[in-house]
Nucleic acid binder design. Structure first.
Lengths: 105, 105
DNA sequence: TATATATATTGTAATATTTGTACATACAGT
DNA sequence: ACTGTATGTACAAATATTACAATATATATA
């Protein structure tokens, strides 16, 4: 089904940005406000808002407003599985590069 | 570590395209030549080559040349875990949309 | 050698994404 | 109502990606 393909492509595209990845990882330990995120990321707060906005549209995160703050959470924890698997793939590549180097004695 | 972040971002970016996703899924059942892929995908063979080239650079696939054919394989099967998890997230969203609709009796 | 087939590369126009800046809105405290 | 803080949106310039067409390379075979 093409809808699934396109969904996946949009999902991975949404993950394909270092700042958005950082945000998602920060949200792994629980909900955060924009300011909290901004403090760690050290980029313009409007940029943080922009990335969050994109992730809201793609349904990666939920926003909860309380007073003047907005708390963000990751909507589907399976997202963290993706991040964990990506890390594994990174480690596989490192391991493989090392073994290639070892062979070149 | 920023290297890991950037790796992940590049990985997800590489996955963020419907044609590349289709190719990876076709490769799940074993190695394929460019022509075989092209026949299924029904796009210009040069476009298939381009996408494969990108995935070669990002180390997602390996190429094996035999005669005039080039056989492609997925380098790290964990890639398929990513695809499977993405499908799960899709299904979660569908399920959630349906339950929202059901509530609106 | 000439030709056909498979694959790769390059140029390029159309399109999409990213980033910064400026502005807008919402709410809390005074 | 006024001010400050938190967040969001709009726009434009810079950059990146895509998709197609044209060209190039490599290999097999006549």
């Amino acid at each position: 089904m093409a809808a699934l393909q396109d969904f996946k492509a949009e999902l991975f595209k949404a993950l394909g940005h270092p700042v958005r990845l950082r945000i998602l990882e920060l949200l792994e330990s629980g909900e955060k406000t924009v300011s909290e995120l901004q403090a760690v990321l050290e980029i313009e707060s409007s940029s943080v808002s922009q990335q969050l906005s994109l992730m809201r549209v793609r349904q990666l995160v939920d926003a909860r407003k309380h007073g003047t703050n907005v708390f963000y959470t990751v909507r589907d924890p399976s997202i963290f599985d993706l991040l964990a698997t990506a890390r594994q793939i990174f480690e596989h590549q490192l391991a493989q590069m090392n073994s290639v180097l070892d062979d070149e004695t």
